[in-house]
């Protein structure tokens, strides 16, 4: 147990030292959010309708930028070899890594998405489903990112993005739909429940697959 707490602390420390890990998603998000009104239209009516999708897509794209971070450095510097040699439970360690990656790359954006109320004229009553759907949906995206990252370790190939998009599609649809539902006065809890179900169902599977993919590089 001490072992895993130590790994958790280590990951936190590394991410907090590596300022790019959490600043670049935030900057990416802020730039995109301020470019949409300029690029599309500054008409509040149009922006309001597009806002749920725009926010979700921006979050998705910023994770697309950061998913390589989960394992690539560990692979380059040899930490993964040491983890494998330690004989410890690798899936728990991978889970810790995904969790810390989520804290640093997704959580700040989720908090910042509140800004869309001012910048995209997003109605305030939509904030609750926006935040909830992001909180439940983004961990799933991070899981996919971990799998894609583990599979495409060491080489930049089309594989990562080509995998991320189709896998994330259902989450994106359910997430934006939840927001649109609530804005139209429809009960959105079924969407949130589905998102939760996807997360709970996929967590062990993707974790297992990611560990398997990592081990494949050491064969």
């Amino acid at each position: 147990m001490i072992y895993f707490i130590k790994i958790l602390k280590k990951e936190f420390l590394i991410y907090s030292r590596k300022s790019s890990s959490f600043i670049s998603p935030v900057v990416f998000f802020l730039i995109s959010i301020s470019l949409y009104p300029i690029g599309i239209s500054n008409d509040p009516g149009i922006l309001k309708n597009l806002a749920p999708g725009l926010i979700w897509i921006t979050v998705l794209l910023s994770t697309l930028i950061s998913f390589q971070n989960i394992f690539s450095e560990d692979y380059e510097d040899g930490s993964i070899e040491l983890l494998l040699a330690s004989g410890q439970n690798l899936s728990l360690i991978v889970l810790i890594k995904i969790f810390v990656n989520w804290i640093f790359s997704c959580l700040p954006i989720i908090i910042l998405s509140v800004l869309s109320v001012f910048l995209l004229y997003f109605p305030q009553e939509g904030l609750k489903p926006l935040i909830i759907s992001l909180l439940i949906g983004t961990p799933t995206i991070c899981l996919f990112g971990a799998l894609a990252g583990a599979l495409s370790l060491g080489k930049n190939s089309i594989t990562g993005p080509a995998l991320m998009l189709p896998l994330s599609l259902p989450v994106l649809i359910l997430g934006t739909q939840a927001i649109n539902y609530s804005l139209n006065g429809i009960n959105f809890s079924s969407n949130i429940l589905l998102l939760t179900a996807i997360l709970v169902f996929l967590l062990p599977i993707i974790l297992f697959a990611s560990v398997g993919a990592l081990k494949l590089h050491f064969n």
Partner: peptide
């Protein structure tokens, strides 16, 4: 085990790298 790659984290100091070395719980 100590491999060809050092397993050291660039962003951690020498002291931290040793303290958080997974081989030294």
């Amino acid at each position: 085990y100590s491999g060809h790659k050092t397993g050291l984290k660039n962003n951690l100091t020498a002291r931290e790298n040793i303290y958080f070395d997974i081989r030294l719980p």
